[in-house]
Design a protein around this nucleic acid. Sequence first.
DNA 1: TGCGGCTATTG
DNA 2: CACAATAGCCGCAG
Length: 568
Amino acid sequence: MSRAGAIVAVAVTPGVGAAWMPDGGEVSTAGWDDAINRLREIEEDVGPRWLWWSGDIGRTFVANDIRPARCWDLEVIHRLLVGGWRAGPARIWAEAEGLDPDGIPERAPVDLFHQPSDRDDEALREDGHLDPEWAAGERADTLAHLVVWVELATRVYGAQIDRLAAPETGSPSPAHAATARSESAAELLCAELESDGLPIDVPTAESVIAGFVGRRPTDASEAARIERERDDLVLRHAPTDSEFDLRNPGQVKSLLRRVGVELPDTRAWRLEAERDTHPIVDALLTWRKAERISTTFGYGWIDEHVGADGRLRGSWTASDGAAGRMTATAGLHNMPADLRPAIVAEPGHVFIRADLGQIEPRVLAAVSGDEALARACLDDDMYQPVADRLRVEREIAKVAVLGAMYGQTTGKGAEALAGLERGYPVAMGYLRAAAEAAQGGNDLRTFGGRRVRMSGSIAPGSSDRDGRSRAAARGRYGRNAMVQGAAAELFKTWAVLTRARTAEFSGQIVLCLHDELLVQAPLDRADAAARAVDSALDEAAHRWAPPDHPRVRFLSDTSVIARWSDAK
DNA sequence: TGCGGCTATTG
DNA sequence: CACAATAGCCGCAG
């Protein structure tokens, strides 16, 4: 029997045990021997929305093979409401209680007068702040302490619910509470992505790598010899009486000047234009590619990040950076396309690869409420109707729309920008308002309720001493964050619904890539899983979409494939 | 040792 | 070569 509305606050410490408390009910505890079984029973019998302090608890669940359907992550929602990255129990508590975060106590130094054993055991100080030793996680070591944590969690939860519904957050919107739930689930999905990893066929990966840098060296001296030979393929085109370090851009520039190629910098797209000028340019481009594979995506990368089970693992964050996108380490988000043939579904399985078409301009149409732009989204290729309206080529229209979202003011799309202003004034006004607010140093809030801080270290402007360009950079940052951030929210809603709806077909999300999902499923259930991915998008668009705005059509290009490179 | 600059890769 | 990210190597300041 499932009670979908049930909230169960929970705190777990491996080796110690667990405490849990249903909303309005009694607190229970179990020692570690019993804790995981009890929690698993609750998940299976009740399927509650687990309320916990941070993704650490979710990771503990996942590490013990419990995959909850629903959660409420206080730290995730704190970041959503407050913006930025700083969190932790002390900040979360202070925010919930309306206390000044600058008043958060430092921990007392351990010295003759402050021994650890002197501590009293109260979680809350007289001034209302969380005790620093509790905040540092040192008081999660007994069942009695875990009981206190679940009680405190319940109090923070109440405050967050109030805050999500309050006008202070901007326009009060059910989207904010919905985003809070999907962002929590996304953090849980990150725990699973870290645990599960991405299937990679190591022999295939190594043969791709070998194609760029040669066979795996057996020892350090062979590695050094190969490196030297690679360097020589470039340097043989250079004057023999001079030494150049190819890894030093300044020296590469001098080297090129010596052979008559004068460039402001040595980026690949500039070198590309000079390929025919001198043979050293082509050699250098080849060297760069090999060097990149060798240092970043070579044998060392495989050794470091691929497990014995043939899974590539990195760490994941559910809402990083300016706008709250998912991020991943270990090259999971920037793996060269050349390596995609090595991403292969395991025996008896296939991948469902699904990617959203033109997600950012469609999201712009939705959040701005621009009816004309929303109508353009009815087309599979929304740039075509925009081009027709502006009476320009499709490529021009595309560059103009992207330029508007990125804050471009010069170049090819600039003249079409005026047409956009006339044709889609609501969307353009939305972007301009965001840019102006950001330029003036005002915090923004995305459609889903994420606060984008314009004060603080993430926002641009610290290194740039020119005030005007700094202001312009802030404007572009804010303008883009509103679109990219809302797109990230829609994407995560889709991802967590895909997680839920493909589970019955044994689907497992193995990669999230901003607008693309890779799901592994058993061969014989692939079609059903693929249909579930598509219907999860419809469901996500429904849940996420602004209720008082024109409906916007979202599209997924979905295919069933054996390896990542097979699609499109 | 930490940080900014340059470079390459992805969405 | 606009917006976002991770990550490597180099030179330079402390």
